[in-house]
């Protein structure tokens, strides 16, 4: 594993834990898109079905299990435990506009027309756009809590670092996966606008708020 991949995985883990911790400590999921969190739970579930069919390494298995468990815990906190604080009116992104085209694309463009492969491809495509309900919610309310922006930054950083990991692997291992690379590029581009706001506002101690 190269350094980019290593930092990326822990950045991803940090993002997931920051979000869980924020919700648990504040006893509130205000400002968090439950829809994005459901999409991430679907992403992890469909991608990590290979936990049942193959063993790669203890690291690989542990991280997959942690990601899946934390994503379900987050969904549980939002829709069950702290449901009263969930801001459903502002979480109005139509997820079917993501899931249906992404499902169709996964059936059309994949490595192998087999159930597990299609689900893996579906998860890669879906992950690239799963943050959109969250970004839509922030654009609708015009603001985000600082802790939420830290979560988003870690989540965006993770996929950006994977791009470096893929460049590394191409040069040193001759390995590349076009599906993951294209989806990863799309995913990273979606965060660019946010990265700009994070650096120019949040890192300078200001709250992230958008002009009306």
């Amino acid at each position: 594993m190269n350094i980019f991949r290593g930092i990326a995985d822990f950045s991803h883990l940090a993002a997931i834990i920051i979000l869980l911790h924020k919700i648990w400590k504040s006893r509130s999921c205000a400002g968090i898109s439950g829809k994005s969190q459901i999409l991430f739970a679907i992403v992890f579930t469909t991608r990590y079905l290979d936990l049942l069919t193959s063993f790669i390494s203890l690291y690989n298995t542990s991280m997959k299990v942690i990601y899946i468990s934390c994503s379900y815990a987050t969904v549980y906190l939002i829709y069950m435990k702290f449901r009263a604080t969930y801001d459903g009116n502002h979480d109005s992104f139509r997820v079917e506009f993501l899931v249906v085209p992404v499902g169709g694309l996964a059936v059309l463009i994949n490595h192998d027309f087999a159930l597990l492969e299609i689900l893996w491809t579906f998860s890669i495509y879906l992950e690239s756009v799963a943050i959109l309900p969250q970004l839509f919610m922030i654009s609708k309310t015009g603001e985000a809590e600082t802790i939420t922006t830290h979560y988003l930054f870690c989540l965006g950083l993770y996929r950006a670092l994977y791009l470096f990991n893929w460049i590394w692997r191409f040069y040193f291992e001759g390995f590349f996966d076009m599906i993951a690379i294209v989806a990863g590029l799309v995913q990273t581009v979606l965060y660019c606008d946010f990265f700009y706001l994070y650096v120019t506002k949040v890192l300078k101690g200001k709250k992230l708020s958008l002009p009306a």
């Binding site: 991949r5 193959s54 390494s57 991280m63 490595h111 692997r169 291992e173 996966d177 993951a180």
Partner: peptide, 10 residues
Amino acid sequence: EDEDKRKDEL
């Protein structure tokens, strides 16, 4: 073999 490399990533 490539599939294993792919599935190694998270």
